[in-house]
Design a protein around this nucleic acid. Structure first.
Lengths: 319, 319
DNA sequence: CAGGAAGCTGTTAGCGCTATCAGTATCAGA
DNA sequence: TCTGATACTGATAGCGCTAACAGCTTCCTG
């Protein structure tokens, strides 16, 4: 018992005893068994984080925000990957909950019924992140992707572009957030009597090369476009490089825009218009909710909507 | 007891009982407590993976390889991040081992003494990845970064470049692998009587922008360089974009090379010379060792050296 | 000097599972 | 008929820790 107290820095132990215990632990290479500790104390210092993909570049930054805040709370993030599959997500949720974590952070507000049921039953804080267009199980931190899409469309229309095309992932059912952005985008177009002139879909991961190829294919098919709206910055950057190489007049003859506010864009020959997704802030706020550190003092059921800012860069005509 | 059997699919249970148990579990939203299960069975289906950073782009691909192999073994990867700090790494190792995982995969072969002691004591398979220039605690999978640096230098020398500079991270003590590459690189240079003409260091994360800035600063200071060796592809790509914009003759007047074989490079206007670090394969092989699925049948203490291949791209003069 | 607080150490009883073994029922084969 | 195998279910005893409390000593306060 005294050993337990020393190793957890809890309760009063005399200095001499503490020294002796630590020395013994060191010399034996003793590592306490957290499994037993967790079972006895009913406390687990882990926070599950479920994201669709590690390679997306979006999530590392969210993780950074989370780690930053959890750092001095004694909580540890544990990452699970769902590969954009609801079934896989369900399994990961089950797996994580069976370890009784102190909280769960997961991307998106769309889940299978079974997942929602498990989350609702879990009895620990649940934070759904990235997206707030929907009904969260408990808390949520994110932006409205629908609104983000609309806002971008309005900026594009205001700049005078009219023959607009969309380039994005082919699985609108899977990357729900990209789909919502597109919905908002088309909504805003139709309000001024416009529709998308063309669209180009792809499957698999996003890459510069993919962006180039899609752009080339699209412009070959429909040469008289004056704006290309990409579902993310990576393919947008590829498209931009392609346009510049072909000597197209950007943003005079043709404008471009992506989404995410990726650091990558800062190094490109010209800065792609984009919209920052507040990733760091989303990570921070979600961790605060789990750690019970919200300044508001609210516990559970909080929905925090962040406002993405439009970064017009050099690929949309200015006023 | 019968419930336990049903939920774990172990032992004989009559079909009717099984149905009843599953139905009850479903309707109660019951999620078994793995903590108790693990304590009782002394088995934990988790594999700890400790990497220096999530934003490095190198590690997501390693993770992909790991997940792929663990997929059908019932084992689950759990990610920890050390931020290139040995102290932090030590904490993460301690934390992970205290959960008694089925194995541990960690980047690099350099660790604090305390870390090495813990790993040696752990009693589970340990795989050190990425780097094999050193003495692993147990198994290791990776490439020789020293050799990789040497190989690149030889290719550069063979192409006739003589006034060579290095651009890389400022903390040679932290990113040990970059340092080893540089050591191998300089070794090969000195064998033909050359030394680095100049070098430029930076701190913080790698980005295209950083690559541009460093390249500009370096060439301003030492204009007559004919080769720039970057410690990674991201800053190399930034440098390449800068050189192309300035209208420099690449690879005629000046050559460039990076390291990693990043997908990003495929979309650039010109393809940067690089060396692929076998990341996917490293992930796969390390997971195989943990899962005990090595075709060799060897258990523990295996060192697998992979051979990185030089990809000359378009930024080294061809013979 | 009583009374109580504070400092320290130890005892006991679980936490929610699983390993192991015991027990019952059924059935084939000798 | 009995034997032994097979199918199934249940009882018991931990896994390695911590919460809660008990007990002792010391020290302070009035």
């Amino acid at each position: 018992m005294t050993v337990s107290r020393v190793l957890r820095n809890r309760g009063d132990v005399s200095e001499t005893t503490r020294e002796r215990v630590l020395e013994a632990a060191r010399s034996l290479g003793y590592v306490p068994n957290k499994i037993a500790g967790a079972l006895a104390s009913q406390r687990v210092n882990l926070v599950g984080v479920i994201i669709p993909s590690l390679s997306n570049m979006v999530f590392p930054e969210v993780m950074t925000g989370i780690s930053e805040v959890l750092e001095d709370t004694g909580l540890q993030p544990v990452v699970g990957v769902s590969n954009y599959s609801h079934d896989r997500e369900e399994q990961v949720i089950y797996e994580m909950l069976s370890w009784r974590p102190s909280g769960l952070i997961l991307a998106g507000v769309e889940h299978s019924d079974a997942s929602r049921a498990m989350l609702a039953q879990a009895g620990v804080p649940i934070v759904e992140i990235m997206d707030i267009d929907g009904t969260p199980v408990d808390s949520a931190v994110g932006i409205s992707h629908r609104r983000a899409g609309r806002q971008m469309a309005e900026a594009i229309i205001a700049a005078g572009y009219r023959r607009i095309a969309f380039l994005g992932t082919h699985m609108p059912s899977q990357d729900t957030r990209a789909r919502k952005r597109l919905e908002g985008f088309e909504e805003a177009l139709s309000q001024v009597g416009l529709t998308l002139v063309d669209r180009e879909y792809y499957t698999g991961g996003s890459s510069l090369l993919k962006g180039r190829e899609m752009t080339e294919a699209l412009l070959k098919r429909t040469p008289d476009l004056d704006f290309l709206y990409y579902s993310n910055d990576m393919i947008g950057a590829g498209g931009l490089l392609w346009c510049l190489e072909k000597g197209l007049d950007v943003p005079g003859k043709i404008g471009l825009a992506g989404f995410n506010g990726m650091e990558l864009l800062d190094g490109l020959p010209r800065k792609l218009a984009t919209m920052d997704a507040c990733r760091l802030e989303i990570g921070r706020k979600s961790a605060e909710i789990i750690a019970g550190k919200r300044p508001s003092g609210v516990i559970g059921g909080e929905v925090i909507e962040l406002q993405p800012t439009l970064q017009p860069g050099d690929t949309i005509r200015r006023g």
